[in-house]
Design a protein around this nucleic acid. Structure first.
Length: 909
RNA sequence: GGGAGGUUAGCUCAGUGGUAGAGCACCUGCCUUACACGCAGGGUGUCGUGGGUUCAAGCCCCUCACCUCCCACCA
């Protein structure tokens, strides 16, 4: 693809000028489309090359976004991390598949379409099931495209030829297969139980969809007359209207106050029904009055109590949240609130309302619609996941499934150990209709198809169950249904189990746990080896984003303003384990500046390198110290980045890269390369090192900043020898074993940098501009110091003099004592370093020097005390002791220097 | 009631027992061989509290406090 030549490169980089261009180019060339090789096939989770030439797969399944709308910041974060991993592994030579797709999101989508319909004054019932579903499908087409467009904007390297949707034909087949198998195994059953009923959604919901909230309520105390007497017992309740459905009163078997009542009866106020007293251990004697009303059909605890005592139940509230006829003529048809008011009035009238008080407690709400959950008796489909949960626990315990951060392990264990049957049926239209059919007599036939059900029934006069499955049922199959399961496809054999799952901790139970359970059950394998759980993206103040608060950031707006690369880099850099992510757009401006830095560093290099090309190999031993140093830093960085990516430490990997590129490469190396590129320099291969470092830096950065790196890499002379087409497929750099500095060289480089800093420091202190030149006086701090003589020789070499002139404004290096008018500035590695500027010296600030001296002396005291401690010298490692000694030496030289400057030579050491 | 995480610079956060770090913000001076989305320099910390282990603790152990979040059928 054509790029503008360097001469036309703009001073300022503009992400908009190339981002969409590259996304289109990549898509057109099909770089991200995966092909399953004929042989050999190596399971994706092996992290070491199993055999040469084997095409190892790597696979990430996208957590399918709901088709209800657009991507939010959480999607942007997770997509960035998934893309980063996929691009990184792809560059490492893995056959890397990132499979995209969307979720039909039953309740959420149906609600949105119904809301849309409501604007026309219609309900879904006006249209009827078929026409309503047609409408949802057309809605889906519209939004699915939107999600793809947004992923493209972010630079996602998905294989769009494999895009899936949870309601498409293949996945629907997988859902029916899974359902029927679980039914045949006896794990799925249909039955009447007390379920969480949402009157807001008009459907049953699972336990996970119930959210507990603290509520300011009232606690009423009501007197129940005891049958055959004049006594009363007082019962506390927060829901008096359910009294109409009471079938017993319960007390603790050992409660002396009420023992005599066990076996006797009470009269339900208003209703007049006679109900027994039962003894049950679950009753807390200390709470309320110690007597509990038992309403088996409207309270889960009471349901259990009722079961234990064989009590009947009475349904007094219906699915619309109104009182039934069983509640009595006066109440039938009333909303719960109205029924409560009426009942309380009647109790007052009868003198049976003993007490009323404010009361704070936790109440279940429907997470999605926000209404109070009504516990109701209802016939639903349930999935008993207990044995699957045990397998999921085992997979985690034996390491086949790793959660990152590992602290989620306890949560995982606790939830799976206390798991209850999963209510999987929903009274909705949008979703996978349950593959069960009924004949006129109501006999149920579960089968993969209507035909198969008809074969079971012996006739075709069947009606399919009207309910659909919980959306999470199909999501649970996602890692393998997307690869063609239950067919034994090549994709499934090659890419399953997948490598990594990246998702938010908020759906650990909803989704991750269920995928693991279903995956283990149907394929015998955990669907992924590792799960990276991200935090929540919050606003700059750390507040959760919400429409009502108006603090929502839209990824699309951010990409528009800062460019996709800056958005990606920011998100990856902020992803610290176990932390939420406070996202400040200011931060993105900072990483956009990083993009600008990379752009300009490249622009500079290209303007300097002339005919040079990226070298295939470089003779490290022939290079001068600055070149050797930057290559060693490059190698260290490459190693650190990959290690951090292995551990999902995107934050550390990105800051490694940021630090290396900005500080080491731009601030130090490019500055040092400037004199090295000038004619007459003795340093070898400077231009090649410049290009090589740039090439590898861009490749290292590519997974995080794909667009910018491609745009720039394409301009590097010689890039096509690394990969003929694209940086996306160029090899990811690793550590170079030969690029290592010895200890002496490392110290020498440090000395060089400290010398430069010292000169700059002094210049800044004296408010001199960089134009004021300096002479640099160097001398050994101690007489006859052999170690320092080698350093002195290096610092005074013509090449280094040239370098110091360029980056520190040093005109001349003099190996001598500074003139008497100058003060010795500092001592480093046994060398006294004194810059003398071509302007008159300022009077020495004695106060400041005095303070410095005091500090040095304090430190000397500390280090000395440590060295003199017998325990320290006996127990501390030799290296630490040696370090402390060296430190003391340096401090003492510094003290001597300061004393000289202060004219206190005479004082004793 | 159980559980998890957090508490480090003004802000947001890294930190691997051995003299406390980054980015942003702030202050000073600079249009210097690419970059003012820049360069150079600056500095601030009782590392939440109180104990313990250790020659040595921001880091390991215990206590408490505060903040976030998850799980949980005291009506």
């Amino acid at each position: 693809m054509r790029t503008t030549p360097i001469s036309e490169m703009d001073k300022r980089f503009d992400p908009k000028s190339y981002e969409s261009r590259w996304q289109q180019d990549w898509a057109a060339k099909g770089y991200f489309v995966c092909f399953v090789p004929d042989l050999p096939i190596v399971p994706s989770r092996l992290s070491d090359p199993a055999e040469p030439g084997a095409a190892r797969s790597y696979c990430i399944m996208i957590p399918p976004p709901n088709i209800t709308g657009k991507l939010h910041m959480g999607h942007a974060l997770q997509s960035t991390l998934q893309d980063l991993l996929t691009r990184w592994r792809r560059m490492q030579g893995r056959n890397a598949l990132w499979l995209p797709g969307t979720d039909h999101a039953g309740i959420a989508t149906q609600l949105m379409v119904e809301r849309d319909l409501a604007k026309e004054g219609k309900s879904r019932h006006d249209l009827g099931r078929d026409r309503f579903l047609e409408r949802v499908w057309s809605w889906k087409e519209q939004y699915q495209g939107n999600i793809r467009r947004q992923l493209d904007l972010l630079g996602a390297s998905c294989d769009w030829t494999r895009e899936r949707f949870t309601l498409d034909e293949g996945l629907s087949l997988a859902v029916r297969e899974a359902f029927v198998r679980l039914f045949e195994e006896g794990r799925i059953t249909r039955g009447e139980y007390l379920v969480n009923w949402s009157t807001g959604l008009d459907t049953a919901i699972s336990d996970l969809e119930v959210e507990m909230r603290q509520v300011q309520d009232k606690l009423w105390k009501i007197a129940y007359p005891i049958a055959g007497g004049t006594e009363h017992v007082v019962v506390a309740t927060t829901r008096p209207e359910t009294l109409l459905g009471d079938t017993a009163l319960a007390v603790h078997p050992e409660d002396e106050r009420y023992r005599h009542l066990i076996g006797r009866h009470a009269v339900v106020p208003v209703a007049g029904r006679v109900i027994p007293f039962v003894a049950d251990e679950s009753v807390e004697r200390e709470f309320g009055t110690g007597v509990v009303k038992v309403t088996p059909y409207h309270d889960l605890a009471d349901f259990e109590t009722g079961r234990r005592h064989g009590l009947p139940g009475i349904q007094v509230i219906d699915r619309q949240g109104r009182m039934t006829s069983a509640a009595g003529e006066e109440f039938a048809g009333l909303e719960v609130d109205a029924a409560r008011a009426l009942l309380l009035a009647k109790l007052r009238e009868a003198g049976l309302l003993v007490h009323e008080e404010d009361y704070v407690h936790n109440v279940g709400f429907c997470q999605r619609s926000g209404v109070r959950v009504q516990p109701l008796m209802s016939t639903q489909w349930f999935c008993d996941v207990s044995s699957m949960a045990a397998e999921a626990l085992a997979a985690h315990r034996n390491g086949r499934l790793e959660l990152v951060p590992a602290s989620w392990g306890k949560t995982w264990e606790h939830w799976l150990e206390n798991i209850r049957p999963w209510c999987i049926s929903r009274q909705l239209w949008w979703g996978h209709q349950i593959p069960a059919w009924y004949d006129e007599a109501g006999t149920c036939f579960v089968a993969r198809t209507r035909e198969a059900a008809a074969a079971q029934a012996g006739h075709d006069r069947l009606t399919q169950d009207g309910d659909v499955l919980d959306t999470w049922f199909s999501s649970a199959l996602w890692p393998f249904s997307t690869l063609g399961w239950p067919e034994k496809t090549a994709d499934l054999a090659y890419f399953y189990p997948t490598s990594v799952l990246v998702t938010g901790f908020d759906i650990l139970f909803f989704w991750v746990a269920r995928m693991v359970m279903m995956g283990l059950h149907f394929t015998g394998e955990s669907p992924f080896a590792r799960v990276h759980l991200t935090g929540l993206v919050r606003d700059a103040e750390g507040v959760k984003m919400s429409k009502t608060k108006g603090n929502v950031l839209d990824p699309e707006d951010l990409v528009d303003e800062y460019g996709a690369d800056a958005v990606r880099f920011t998100l990856a850099l902020l992803d610290s384990p176990g932390r939420d992510i406070p996202l400040d757009p200011e931060r993105m401006a900072g990483y956009r500046a990083f993009g600008n830095k990379i752009w300009n560093a490249t622009r500079f290099a290209l303007s300097k390198v002339g005919e040079a090309r990226i070298p295939e190999a470089i003779d490290f031993d022939r290079l001068a110290l600055p070149e050797r140093w930057i290559l060693s830093r490059l190698s260290q960085t490459a190693e650190a980045v990959s290690l951090h990516l292995e551990e999902f430490r995107f934050d550390l990997a990105c800051s490694d890269l940021y630090q290396f590129f900005w500080s080491d490469f731009c601030d130090w190396y490019i500055e040092m390369a400037k004199p090295g590129c000038d004619p007459g320099s003795e340093r070898l291969l400077v231009k090649e090192v410049l290009l090589l470092t740039l090439d590898r830096s861009l490749r290292l950065l590519h997974p995080a900043m794909p667009f910018l790196t491609e745009e720039l890499w394409q301009r590097l002379p010689g890039h096509d020898a690394i990969h003929p087409q694209t940086i996306c497929l160029a090899a990811y750099p690793g550590r170079e074993p030969g690029w290592v500095l010895g200890a002496t060289e490392t110290e020498l480089m440090k000395l060089l940098q400290e010398t430069v800093t010292l000169v700059r420091n002094e210049r800044a202190d004296r408010k001199l501009t960089h134009r004021v030149k300096a002479e640099l006086y160097l001398q050994p701090a101690k007489a006859d110091d052999e170690e320092s003589s080698a350093s002195l020789a290096y610092l005074s070499s013509s090449e280094v003099q040239r370098l110091l002139a360029s980056i520190a404004g040093v005109q001349r290096v003099v190996l001598a004592s500074p003139p008497a008018s100058a003060i010795n500035k500092s001592v480093r590695q046994g060398i006294g370093i004194t810059p003398v500027f071509e302007v008159p010296a300022e009077p020495v600030d004695l106060t400041k020097l005095g303070l410095e001296l005091a500090k040095v002396e304090e430190n000397i005291g500390k280090v000395r005390a440590r060295l003199e401690s017998a325990d320290f010298s006996a127990k501390a490692p030799a290296a630490v002791i040696e370090g402390a000694r060296k430190n003391l030496d340096a401090l003492e030289l510094e003290r001597a220097r300061l004393r000289t400057a202060l004219g206190r030579d005479s004082e004793a050491g």
